[in-house]
Structures are given as structure tokens and as C-alpha cells.
Write a protein that binds this DNA or RNA. Structure first.
Lengths: 238, 238
DNA sequence: TAGTGGTCTAGACCACCTG
DNA sequence: AGGTGGTCTAGACCACTAC
């Protein structure tokens, strides 16, 4: 465990537990560096991560401040800029999957391009309805190259990411594309909603720790029911 | 201009111009630091920004690599994780605004909370249809405290951000919330689409360089027509 | 084992806000 | 003018990959 990560976790915890409160500036970087017995640069790296999270912000020449937490309904707000699957987001609720379709086949031209593979490499084609508390929550269509390892229907009942992580594969980078659409036959049937009703679509291309594209997925979410948050922060001096 | 920013811009340009190509690893950090006559840490900071942009990725012990650019249709893909308004995104096209509603009033309770103000502070209430090439592109409802400065109908014809930037106010941080909805009366009328058709909604709370919330806005976009991209990157060693 | 990226330090100087 | 955050350096050591 690196020092800056430890400090990041500790400061985050102190802020969330309201030991450190909005309204009162954080101690200076020098004081915090003394307190944690590290160099100021190491401490600043921890602060940078908190800035990136949108938890604090710094004003050059003035100090570092805690951003007031607006809307504590964050439980229902899913982070769009964190690398994780749908299961992660509802750890406290009962999640399960209903497999609609599963096969191994050759990729399409489009899939070859997105996954950066040749068309003689096989891919898994997976369609699942994700359930939270036995209610349809989202519908996924995922295409994965077979190099990720053996997958069968029983694997799909749970989180694929957990399974892949156990095999040493991590989702470290991703590009997500978001837009609104109307539910087609497949989507409305899988999610038990009306044909043509509004849905949020999230496309994801996932990359592992070696930079390989290993997932090309599309997920559909119900209107208003699922809301996603993105935090934006300009870094460096203003 | 800081060294790491200069190097960041230069490297980005060299990658986009394909002088540096995917497939060929970047020179080592030491070599690049030599080339730019800076310390390795300074160079690494520039690389970190490129990693954050999703342009390159590093593998510890191996090297730094350029991510193949998938889909050069990035012109039509709007970055959701960059702080800017709708006008910025279509600099090369003719953008204009149609002001639907404009007034100065007291804020609602909800607005006081989001904007972190008291209810005796006045706010601007603005509704605009944004046009690109004279076609309705989006519909905005923006609430701003009057401390941002004087705003009138003529200001609203163009980018508010440009105007505010000229007055020393910068949008440096923001929280955006994204979901799908169906067009209500106002939205369908303003965007000239059918009542009930799917739309993408983006809520934004914008913060200036002093950490003040100065904007609470909601924007509606047409189905499929507008697609937004988010890049996600785990930082640090894998 | 050699090479590469990641972390950490001590110290210096600069840019900016606040009195 | 003093204090605070931002940048930059030179050098050291650690973690990981590739051979």
C-alpha cells in the first residue's frame, strides 16, 4: 500500500465521517504533511485524488476546502465515471441475472474494430436482464473475446467482473457512450416495459490492465428510474 | 505556461498528427525527459494528463503505449467529462439561441440548496432553445444567482460562458446527472419534437474557480441525435 | 537480470490570495 | 508582506515486465 493512497483513504474517511467539515478550511499542506510524516508532494498527491473525486477543492494562495455534499440521495445516483459493473452499484441489494441469450461465435466487422481483434478469434455473445430485488433493472448485451477465459451459463448468474478479477483480469479503463433511445422489441420484452418507451443506453468498451479491449457492451436502463452522475474537475491552477 | 502543460500539448499534437503512432511504444520517460530538458517527474505529469484523457496508457515495467483511436467520429461525440457548454462543442458550426423565457426572481427552496444561497438572493431564470445550423439541438433551463453579473436578453443570444469568462468567472468544476425521460409540453414545443418522445436529460451544477455554485441547469437532447462520451481510467499502478 | 514505470524525499522557487 | 498552494529539480529506491 502506497503512502498517498493510505492518506487519501484516511482523509476521505475523516471528511465523510464529518470529523473534517465544510466551512472549515483543511489544515495547510505543510501541516498535513507533518501530521502524516510525509513529504508535501506525497500529501498533495492524496489531495489531488480528493480533488478528482470532487470531495475537496483548492484555491491557490488561499487554502483547501471541503465541498458541501449536495443531495445525500447518492445511493440512487450511479457514478458514471468509475470503472465498475451494475452489480457493484447495488452491493447492498439482491442482484441477479436472467440469461436471455448465450452463444460463442465469430465477431462482426464492427466488433473486430471495437475490440481490436481479427475475425478468426471467437467471441462470447451474452444477453442478460439484470434484476435488483427481483425487478428488471437493466438489459445488457455484451460481446467478449474468448481470451478472457471460459465462461458458461452458470458464470453469468453473477458478476462477470468478479469472475474475471479472480482470474487476474481487471477492468482499468473504459469508454462509455450515453444517449437516449426508445425501447425496441428485445428491450421492451426483456425489461417488461412498453414498446417505444424512453430508455437510457450506455455503450461501453472495456480495457484490461494491459490495454487490451476485452468487452463491448450495451446496456439499457429505464426512464428516470436510473440516473447517473459525472463529476468534472479542471485540474491545476485556475 | 507551465512546462508540463507545454509538453502535454506537444505530445498530444504529435500523437494526433500520427507522428507518434499506436503499435509503437512511446520513448521511455527518461528519454522524453531528456528530449524536453525536464525532470522525469515533470514529464510524468504530462503523461498522466494524457492517460487521464485516455490517449495513452502505461504498463509498469513495460512501457507507455498509444491507445488506438476507435471511431474517428469523435466530432459527433460530445465529451461529458469536460467542463464546457453546448456552444463550445460546435465551434465549427453556426450556433445560436432562441430565448423562450427570461426573468429575475427569488429562488425556490430546491435552488437555494443546490446553489448554496439564501432565498433573499435573486436569481436569473433562463429558458433557451439552442440551435445548430438553425435546427433545434437542445433545450436548456438555467438558474443563476445574480452575483455572476448583469445578464440581459442580448447576452443570451451567445454563449453565457464566454461572457462570464470575460468577467473573470470560470467554470472549473461541475456535477452532471444524466437520465432518459419523455418530452413534456415545454420540451416538445421548444425542440419541435413529438410529445412523449425519448429525450436525454443532463442536469448540471456548475462551480467557479472559488468553489461557488453559480449555475443550476437542466438540458434536454433529442433521442440518438446527441451522444455523449465518458472516459474512465483507474490511476496508479495496476 | 536489465529495463521500465511508480513512488518518495528535501529543498527551492513561483503564483496567487488575503491582511 | 506573509502565507498558501502549484511547480520543478536531482536523486534514490521500489514494483513490475520482459527476456
Amino acid at each position: 500500500m502506497y503512502k498517498y493512497r493510505t492518506i487519501y483513504n484516511d482523509l476521505k474517511q475523516r471528511i465523510l465521517s464529518r470529523e473534517l467539515r465544510p466551512g472549515v478550511p483543511l489544515p495547510t499542506q505543510e501541516e498535513l504533511a507533518d501530521e502524516y510524516q510525509v513529504n508535501r508532494l506525497t500529501l498533495k498527491k492524496a489531495l489531488d485524488m480528493l480533488v478528482h473525486d470532487g470531495i475537496i477543492y483548492s484555491v491557490q494562495g488561499s487554502g483547501t476546502y471541503i465541498r458541501p455534499q449536495l443531495g445525500t440521495d447518492l445511493d440512487e445516483l450511479l457514478p458514471l465515471d468509475a470503472p465498475n459493473g451494475a452489480t457493484d452499484l447495488h452491493r447492498n441489494q439482491r442482484t441477479s441475472s436472467r440469461v436471455i441469450h448465450f452463444e460463442t461465435r465469430h465477431p462482426t466487422e464492427d466488433e473486430c474494430e471495437h475490440l481490436e481483434i481479427k475475425d478468426d478469434q471467437l467471441v462470447y455473445d451474452i444477453m442478460r436482464t439484470r434484476l435488483v430485488n427481483n425487478q428488471p433493472y437493466s438489459f445488457d448485451h455484451t460481446v467478449m473475446p474468448t481470451f478472457v477465459g471460459h465462461i458458461d451459463e452458470s458464470t453469468l448468474q453473477h458478476s462477470i467482473y468478479d469472475y474475471l478479477e479472480g482470474r487476474g483480469l481487471q477492468l482499468t479503463d473504459a469508454r462509455r457512450i450515453v444517449y437516449a433511445d426508445s425501447a425496441d422489441d428485445d428491450v421492451s420484452a426483456a425489461m417488461e416495459i412498453q414498446l417505444g418507451s424512453p430508455v437510457l443506453v450506455i455503450e461501453q468498451i472495456g480495457y484490461d490492465q494491459y490495454g487490451r479491449a476485452f468487452e463491448y457492451a450495451r446496456s439499457w436502463f429505464r426512464q428516470k428510474h436510473s440516473r447517473f452522475a459525472v463529476d468534472i474537475h479542471k485540474i491545476g491552477p485556475r
